[in-house]
Simulated scan of single mutants.
Amino acid sequence: MPTEPLTPQEFRIWHAFKVMGDDVLERVGRDIALSTGLSGPDFGVLSRLADLGNGEMRQQALAESLGWDKSRLSHHLTRMQKKRLVKRREADQRVVLVVLTEEGRAKLDAARPVHAESVRRNLLSRLSNQQIETIVRVSNLLGEEV
């Protein structure tokens, strides 16, 4: 069933939405990388392990929390293991746990203030309270299944 292409107005909205998120994420990720050597995705994995899993999560649950497929996470975890940020261990035949290492926790602790400052500078300080509330409402709306 053929679908009509986006109108110029629809494309402008889509492009603005995509660029807004990509630009802020890139700047925050760059700040973290310059200060700590962690990539944005490294920070995402480490912070989820610490915040959602108390330092340990099933690999499948971690993938779901990041919105990543299993292959992407597996490759990324292999790189993170080489940097001694995480380790993996089998809980049973079908469950792999991802565990935050001491080095990973130290890097995360160093990155958290950089992340907070960067989010404030690159996003929050540039918006009014009303704009922030609108973004939250739109995010909640778009997060619902259709």
Rank of each mutant, 00 (worst) to 15 (best):
S125P: 00
Q93E: 15
L34N: 02
S74Y: 13
S65H: 08
E117D: 13
R72W: 13
L66G: 04
W68I: 04
S65K: 06
L25A: 12
I135F: 15
L100S: 02
E90S: 10
V96G: 07
T134K: 05
V98W: 01
R137D: 11
E145K: 09
R121C: 07
Q81V: 12
S118C: 09
V45D: 01
V24M: 03
P8C: 06
N129D: 14
L66I: 07
E117M: 06
S65D: 08
D42H: 09
T101S: 09
V99H: 04
K70Q: 15
A16Y: 08
L34F: 04
T3C: 05
E56W: 06
I13S: 04
N54A: 14
E103C: 03
A16W: 07
K87L: 13
P41H: 02
S71W: 13
M80G: 08
E4G: 05
A106N: 11
L123C: 08
G29V: 01
E64C: 02
D23Y: 15
S74V: 07
V96E: 12
T78Q: 13
E102P: 01
K82V: 13
R121G: 04
V136S: 06
D69L: 05
V24F: 06
G29A: 06
D109V: 04
V119T: 07
R120T: 08
L6E: 03
H75M: 11
R137C: 02
S35Q: 11
F43K: 03
R79L: 14
A61H: 10
A116T: 09
A91H: 15
D22I: 00
L124Y: 13
I132R: 12
T78L: 12
V98M: 04
Q130S: 15
E144M: 10
L100G: 00
R120C: 08
L141T: 09
V95G: 05
G21N: 09
L62R: 06
L73T: 01
L46G: 01
Q93R: 13
A16D: 12
L62M: 07
D109W: 05
R30V: 02
L77R: 02
L108S: 06
L46V: 08
E56N: 03
R88Q: 12
R94K: 14
S47G: 00
Q59F: 07
E102F: 08
L97W: 08
E133D: 11
M20S: 12
T78V: 09
R137H: 09
N140S: 10
S74Q: 10
V24P: 01
L62E: 05
I32A: 02
T36N: 05
E90G: 04
L97M: 14
A16H: 11
L73D: 03
Q60H: 12
A111E: 07
M57W: 04
L124D: 06
V28S: 03
A110D: 11
L85H: 05
V99P: 02
T78S: 14
W68Q: 05
G67S: 10
T78F: 10
P8S: 11
G104W: 03
R120F: 15
L77C: 13
S74H: 15
R105S: 10
S125C: 10
R48A: 05
L108V: 06
G37A: 02
P5G: 07
I32L: 02
W68T: 03
D69M: 03
L25N: 08
W68V: 07
A63P: 01
N122Y: 15
T101C: 04
E117I: 05
K82G: 14
R30Q: 11
S139G: 15
D69T: 01
I13M: 10
E133C: 06
R27H: 11
G29W: 02
A50S: 08
